[in-house]
Simulated scan of single mutants.
Amino acid sequence: MTTTDAAAATLLPTPRRRRRPHAAKSWINKIVGAVVVLWAAATATFLLQALAPGDRATLLLNLASGQSRQRTPEEVAPVNEKFGFTDPLARQYLHYLGGILRGDLGTSYQLQRPVAAVILDQIAPTLALTVTALVAAWLIVIAATVLSAGRPGPLGGLSSLAETVAAGVPHYWLGIILLVVFAINLGWFPVEGGDSLKGLVLPALTLAIPLAGFLGQVTRAEFTRALEQPHVLSARARGLGDTATRFRHVLRHSLIPALSISGWAMGALFGGAVITETIFARAGIGQTLVTAAQSRDAPLVSGIVIVIAAVYVIANLVVDVVYTVVDPRISTS
């Protein structure tokens, strides 16, 4: 190599140097995308409040008094002045966004409390339910896939059929069946969810079983393909047992596609919690959302929608980090 060639070689970026700017740019794009999603959710919730039919000041007064009637201009004027309901729409919008940036999601019409405080009081049971359901779904998926995927005979076919059926089961139907069978008839679990661990089992399974069916379909297909990869065949040729091969060399690679939708799944679990918490009379953000929607408490409904969007965004960013833990060769794109 000549001196010129050597000098040119030193100027060429190494693969590691090339990957670092690419990864940084990728993370910047993801964060910008997350901000856009949150901004869109906030804008939609603002329009929900501002353009909803009916006078907001009248609605707020009726909720506070428990009487539904028309209000005089003298009655609604102080409310409009306090909350700025008569300000130009653009000014209301900027004030609303500024409040969100400060952590102020408004005041609940019905409860007369800050929306952020109401959500903080109710979000812990829902987080416990959704996280438990996600973990349970993954445990079901891993066990079913490792034990049955790619095996000859009826086991693989029956497992695949069970995943298809589970993925299509509605939460409300499954929750009622579990409640009637295991809580009312057998008495193994409490009828109402409550705060105990036993009270968490049936609601968590109601959310976990359909999700496990959906994730299992994706994982099973990848697992079956991975069984034919050269490194798997080489492991078997070295005398590694079937179960060990499946856990050490196949499972990790088959989890990647299903992991990519786990962020979406977390947001979907929050949506499913609305139905599940109602069925099992369980405290949480779902019950709060149902009550707020029935009473037309627009600020509380809007605040919960923004929180669910934030959970969805954060979960997707966490999934991107988990990618590199499961398989360090994967770079963000």
Results as ranks from 00 to 15, higher is better:
62 N>P: 01
284 G>W: 01
10 T>Y: 01
223 F>Y: 14
243 T>D: 09
332 T>L: 15
172 Y>A: 14
315 A>W: 10
307 V>N: 03
274 V>Q: 13
2 T>Y: 08
314 I>V: 12
195 D>Y: 02
207 L>N: 13
38 L>N: 00
57 A>L: 05
31 I>R: 12
46 F>T: 08
262 S>L: 10
332 T>K: 09
90 A>N: 10
236 R>T: 14
201 V>H: 00
103 G>N: 06
188 W>P: 01
304 I>G: 04
154 P>H: 05
331 S>T: 13
60 L>N: 12
302 S>H: 09
249 H>E: 13
26 S>H: 09
307 V>H: 02
55 D>T: 13
126 T>H: 04
131 V>G: 10
330 I>W: 02
257 P>C: 10
287 Q>Y: 00
315 A>D: 06
109 Y>K: 12
70 Q>P: 01
109 Y>P: 02
98 G>A: 01
163 E>D: 14
321 V>A: 12
136 A>R: 03
260 S>Y: 08
65 S>Q: 03
192 E>F: 04
84 G>I: 10
248 R>F: 11
153 G>H: 06
75 E>N: 07
21 P>H: 11
40 A>T: 10
289 L>P: 07
77 A>M: 15
287 Q>D: 05
6 A>G: 07
293 A>R: 12
164 T>N: 14
250 V>C: 07
170 P>F: 01
306 I>C: 08
251 L>P: 14
113 R>T: 14
134 L>R: 03
177 I>Q: 01
87 D>I: 01
239 G>M: 09
274 V>T: 14
135 V>P: 06
99 G>A: 04
149 A>T: 04
20 R>F: 13
151 R>N: 06
16 R>G: 11
245 T>N: 15
118 V>E: 15
79 V>S: 05
307 V>A: 05
127 L>C: 12
152 P>R: 15
4 T>E: 15
157 G>L: 04
151 R>M: 12
278 T>H: 09
90 A>S: 12
184 I>E: 06
242 D>S: 08
62 N>A: 00
157 G>K: 00
182 F>I: 00
